[in-house]
Design a protein around this nucleic acid. Structure first.
Lengths: 225, 225
DNA sequence: GGATGTGAATGCATTCACAGCA
DNA sequence: TGCTGTGAATGCATTCACATCC
């Protein structure tokens, strides 16, 4: 088995591993058996050296003169990322976002299965949403134990997110996927991954503003058609 | 006005600027008039030096011996990020995710207003979804010009995302907020910000796996209570 | 005294360039 | 020859530490 020291792997390399996996699956769909670091890099606008170094953090997967065997690399990357098996996941928050997440097919494809849904609103509890029955938060602990849940998704408003996180941590959950626009504080043994729409929107706004401003510096001499 | 060279600003600093803004608004709600880099940093688990350096990339906003005036800094950061005015935004894709985005109040609060919704499915076109009427993609160009839209959100399946991006670029859109799990390729004058659930999930899975593995190295001697 | 802004020093990530293997 | 894996060199971001100002 590949053996690597996680603390020696740069964070950006782990991010890119996900991108490699997706490209590899695309290449596989096109029946490509083998791929070079150059090809894989070009498909993602990265250098070949970057690709090789990233993969080498995790083990020796390539074959000099040949490249990487696509099937093999997919399997290895999935194993490294932990997506070679099913994760049972719970969802807290059955608002608009929660509903969209319940309906989202992508989770299942990636090996993440939402198996329980919770909401603090008594009006929502025990109503069915698709295949899910919404439970009260008091059921967190027994449900987690019964179903062997290790990951939780937080899709509640900002002001209750930290409280929900605390509850999840108390039940022994190991990872939190946070959609609320706040930085959660959790013990170091709990993993957190966040989707922060506010931050992303502001980044986009900043990017566009820069371009617009740069344009203004070269006053818009209309040279069209 | 503050004047900074965008190319001299590290990307991570721009990300953190968004976080600073959110904290500043929280401090303002608690009627705090002034804040030091130390306070601001602690609230986000960053060092004071980091905060000062980040802000200094954009101008001189602080007062030695005093700190930063909260109101003032909020206004300046908003101006830098470009969220001190309303952005008209269009949305392509009226599936589950699109519906959630239409219902999401956070956009409006941040100064992003969805003013038009498009979908390629003829069965959805001209149906109303809340306050929105879904238009066919053929209406992109005229709508963008009529409403002065500069940003587009892509909430369509992976296999049509690049085609939609190409159409948006062709209409002269300046920024794209991409929810589809693909790396879009667009000209360099078009800004892209992406939310990639697949990548985020895999990061979380990786994080949790590391902790689990580390735990296994010290075999679970139960020392509870 | 209490705080900012910033050059200098450190640390981390990427790129280079090449030895070595199929 | 073609390609990987990797030490060495570079480049970028963070942290330190201090001159400066209210």
């Amino acid at each position: 088995m590949e053996n690597f020291r996680p603390e020696a792997v740069p964070n950006p390399a782990v991010r890119r591993l996900s991108l490699y996996l997706r490209q590899l699956e695309a290449f596989k769909r096109q029946d490509q058996r083998t791929i070079s670091s150059k090809q894989l890099g070009e498909s993602l606008a990265l250098t070949d050296a970057q690709v090789r170094k990233d993969l080498a953090y995790f083990g020796q997967f390539g074959h000099p003169g040949i490249g990487y065997r696509v099937d093999d690399l997919i399997a290895r990357v999935k194993h490294i990322l932990g997506t070679d098996k099913i994760w049972n996941v719970l969802l807290v928050g059955a608002g608009n976002l929660g509903l969209a997440l319940m309906a989202y097919k992508g989770f299942e494809n990636q090996g993440f299965r939402i198996v329980a849904v919770f909401d603090s609103d008594p009006g929502k509890v025990n109503t069915g949403r698709g295949v899910f029955v919404i439970q009260p938060l008091s059921e967190l602990q027994p449900t987690i134990q019964k179903l062997g849940i290790r990951l939780g998704i937080i899709a509640v408003p900002a002001d209750s997110a930290q409280a929900v996180a605390d509850q999840l941590v108390a039940t022994g959950i190991q990872g939190i996927f946070n959609f609320a626009p706040v930085s959660l504080s959790v013990p170091s043994h709990v993993g957190v991954s966040a989707v922060d729409l506010a931050v992303q929107l502001e980044q986009l706004s900043f990017l566009v503003n820069i371009h617009t401003t740069a344009q203004q510096q070269v006053p818009a001499r209309d040279a069209s058609t």
